[in-house]
């Protein structure tokens, strides 16, 4: 298993993703957005940041970066693809996952620790996680309010595609624990085929013991274990 982290101009969490995966002993390379070669990677990660300045709309330009042709083909072949934060916004713009990310209800960029409750038992990112244990993970975004129309939402729930929901410290999924106004506290979703995953929170920012929080490592470990299995 080889990981590839795409670097768009304006990506700024690419190195953090590389560091977190390296910390877990995974081979990982960076993929430049102007290239057309996935370098044999099995798992592609679109990192956080402000790809192409997020001008026009978050993720709107990045989806047209040259390498996205190969990334989309990879996903359509059933290859693993994950977007974190800005990466999730790019996936949504590319219609690789259902729904959109709107401006936070507060109208403000927000960076803080929040809690997540793992949801899906069939998506490999969350399948093996303890569904009762809230995970403390940082968010850092201005446009993270998940939205989808009623039919899409129903399909997401019926098909077990919701990976994470925002919750409080005790695990209760409440309005007060929703940091951006996301529909049904949704923090992460998978596509119907369950090989493409998007989430706003940053597990890679909570992977190194030196920083005093390794809840994000649980998510990444789960992901690595299940794709290797």
């Amino acid at each position: 298993m080889k990981f590839g982290v795409v670097v768009f101009p304006g990506s700024n969490c690419d190195q953090d993703a590389v560091d977190a995966l390296t910390l877990m002993g995974q081979p990982v390379v960076k993929l430049w957005h102007k290239d057309h070669d996935l370098q044999g990677c099995d798992f592609i990660l679109l990192p956080g940041g402000f790809a192409h300045g997020d001008y026009l709309r978050t993720g709107a330009i990045a989806r047209f970066s040259p390498i996205m042709n190969e990334v989309i083909a990879h996903a359509n072949r059933g290859g693993y693809l994950m977007g974190i934060c800005n990466g999730f916004q790019v996936l949504a713009e590319a219609r690789l996952v259902p729904g959109v990310l709107l401006r936070n209800l507060s109208q403000k960029y927000t960076c803080k620790n929040i809690y997540l409750k793992p949801q899906s038992s069939s998506v490999l990112v969350s399948a093996g996680l303890d569904k009762e244990q809230p995970l403390k993970i940082p968010i850092a975004h201005g446009d993270g309010r998940y939205y989808a129309d009623a039919d899409t939402l129903k399909q997401l729930n019926d098909n077990d595609q919701v990976i994470f929901r925002y919750c409080d410290e005790t695990g209760a999924i409440t309005d007060a624990a929703n940091p951006n106004g996301s529909l049904e506290n949704i923090a992460g979703v998978a596509n119907e085929r369950k090989n493409v995953f998007g989430m706003m929170p940053h597990p890679e920012r909570a992977a190194d013991p030196l920083l005093g929080n390794t809840d994000g490592r649980l998510i990444l470990e789960q992901l690595v274990t299940s794709v290797l299995a």
Partner: peptide, 25 residues
């Protein structure tokens, strides 16, 4: 400070352990 990204770069040691000065690895 919640309007500032204080964690990008995974180097800020104050996120989960506050101190009088900022500590950055």
């Amino acid at each position: 400070y919640e309007q500032y990204d204080s964690m990008v770069g995974t180097a800020n040691r104050g996120t989960n352990a506050p101190s009088d000065a900022a500590v950055v690895r």
